[in-house]
Simulated scan of single mutants.
Amino acid sequence: MAANEQQTALLAQRLAKNRALTGVERAAVVMFALGDVHGAPVWDQLDDLEIRELSAAMSSLGPVAPETVDDLLIDFVSRMSATGALNGNVESTERLLASLLPKDRVGQIMEEIRGPAGRTMWEKLSNVQENVLANYLKNEYPQTVAVVLSKLRAEQAARVLAILPEDYALDVVRRMLALESVQKDILERIEKTLKTEFMAGLSQSSRRDAHEQMAEIFNSFDRQTETRFLSKLEEAAKESADRIKQLMFTFDDLAKLDSAGIQTLLQEAPRDRLAVALKGASLSMREFMMSNMSSRAAKMLTDDIEDMGPVRLRDVDEAQAGLVGLAKDLAAAGKLAISKSKGEDELVY
């Protein structure tokens, strides 16, 4: 058994020894752990029934051991960040929903997913960019393309036809004009081909790397939570932990900005938040920041830091996270360049 498999098995044993939780109770633990700030986007995605059921589970959850909470969250992070850890399909989705929602609600959702012939697939296809769809269809038999375009909105079909080679598009138009009602089995066959060949490939090519997503989540943690999770993830899945650390952009990485970049950041940063951020920074980081200021500005900032007295670690973390967020915004606007190491040409944000 590989090292990662052994670590996963050990974690599963620990979960089994802790209090047995139902699916909705596990979700309740996660929502409590996320809190109001990080949990808000999740609540926004739930309907009234889901909110009521999850709220009921949270209100009756009772005490949960810290190790149970840690194990549940680490198990989730490990599965999300490990390559191939998740296999999304109709069956696995139905099993997951069955552990969280009432049976009748699961049946309703799965019926919508499987849907009557054509419904779900054509709705999905209507959201695909016309040039992407045209590039795929140009290799198909014109009669098949005629059927597909006849199922789309008129404006979308027109844009696809305009992109296709002219002679080929005219052939498709002639076939659409002569098109009669399509037999159900032919339509289902076309749907199946679109689903297995086109939509599956499109989903795979556009799927974001799970490690990148997890790195962003870890960047949002406070310092203590980040350290705790990384430590435990290193025990459970060291390769995933190392990959996440490589992708994370932290306050200490600001020292890798070039002179122009750090000066731009310092000009945009609120002075009071900068002082709080540097209050809990290392001496080398403080010196780096000060060396890119005028002597007068550096002196004023030093005085601000000395005069503020003790500062809560949470406030320092928030101020430092604010500077990291500001750096990312400036990079997105093209005002500075962020790289993971000095002298590296590749931009990571």
Rank of each mutant, 00 (worst) to 15 (best):
1 M>I: 10
11 L>M: 11
16 A>D: 09
17 K>Q: 11
18 N>K: 04
19 R>G: 10
22 T>C: 11
22 T>R: 12
23 G>H: 04
30 V>H: 01
33 A>H: 11
38 H>D: 05
49 L>G: 03
56 A>V: 13
61 L>P: 05
66 P>L: 04
67 E>Q: 13
72 L>H: 05
78 S>W: 02
81 S>E: 00
92 S>Q: 03
106 V>H: 07
107 G>C: 02
114 R>K: 14
116 P>A: 11
124 K>C: 03
124 K>W: 01
127 N>M: 08
128 V>A: 07
131 N>T: 12
136 Y>R: 13
140 E>N: 02
145 V>I: 10
147 V>L: 14
150 S>D: 05
150 S>F: 08
152 L>Q: 04
164 L>K: 14
169 A>C: 11
173 V>G: 11
196 T>D: 07
218 F>R: 08
225 T>G: 03
229 F>N: 00
231 S>F: 08
235 E>N: 12
247 L>Y: 08
254 L>N: 10
255 A>N: 11
260 A>M: 14
261 G>L: 04
263 Q>H: 02
272 D>C: 02
279 K>Q: 03
285 M>Y: 06
286 R>I: 07
287 E>M: 04
291 S>M: 02
293 M>W: 00
294 S>M: 00
303 D>A: 01
321 A>I: 09
321 A>T: 14
324 V>L: 07
333 A>N: 12
333 A>M: 11
334 G>M: 08
335 K>C: 09
343 G>F: 09
345 D>S: 05
346 E>M: 09
348 V>A: 04
348 V>Y: 06
